[in-house]
Amino acid sequence: MDHTNETEMVLELKDVQASFDDNIVLDNVNLSVKKNDFLAIIGPNGGGKTTLLKIILGLLKPDKGTIKVFGKNPEKGRSLIGYLPQYSLFDRDFPINVFDVVLTARYNRVFKRYSDEDKNIVTNALKSVGMFDYRDRQIGNLSGGELQRVLLARALARRPELLILDEPTVSIDMKAQNSFYELLLKIKETMTIIIVTHDIGVIYPYIDKIACLNQKIYYHGPKEKGLHKIEEMYRMPVELILHDIPHRFLGEHE
């Protein structure tokens, strides 16, 4: 684990600073993600999580610092990223069915139609999340958990090496959340995953590493040692944040 070479580095941020209208949102953020990490970036709302994601995806430019995605700049490296935005931001009335949503991930360039191979990839992505039978449904006829799976299929249809999920289970019921994370456990075997969330409780059993973000990175490392840092950041006992998780999952923390 210590003899990592350059090619195993999936994501690397150095001294990244970002601000909105003179308010510093990210301050001196350093973060490195290695191949096959399952990392949760945890922090309060307004702590800069979304900004950090947008910088990684090349949607925003930082004021300072460098970002390498698979050793390239974000605009180039993001072709290897599968991105799952917050499902609650979608217009559920939009006249589009499940298959066509996932197909948008296979975009290649203008004047090029989606090929049969693209359609096969979409079919497989939908099957892998158990949503193939819903392929002709308009997205408004899906539950929150189902739409989330469709968006996961869309991210997977990129054939990514890094999967980034933004608050994937906000306002989804407990049962759907658990089956969603079980699904991620399978996917984890084949790719690097970053989850951004303010709610560490539900995901804690599934992840390996934690980065605590509130303007700065307060902690970045194995999850067990990060818990007291979360307490410090939220200024409340970890038990309150980990509301849903029995203590046996938590392991040792000093």
């Binding site: 995806l57 090349g58 949607l59 993001r78 072709s79 990223i81 991105y83 935005p85 979608f90 939009f94 589009i96 066509d100 949503v101 948008t104 991930a105 975009y107 290649n108 360039r109 203008v110 139609r113 989606y114 869309r154 990129r158």
Partner: peptide, 17 residues
Amino acid sequence: KEFLSISFDEEFSTVVG
């Protein structure tokens, strides 16, 4: 296909190129 993509999810469209 481009107009559909940007109408549905502009941010995701940018990410996929």
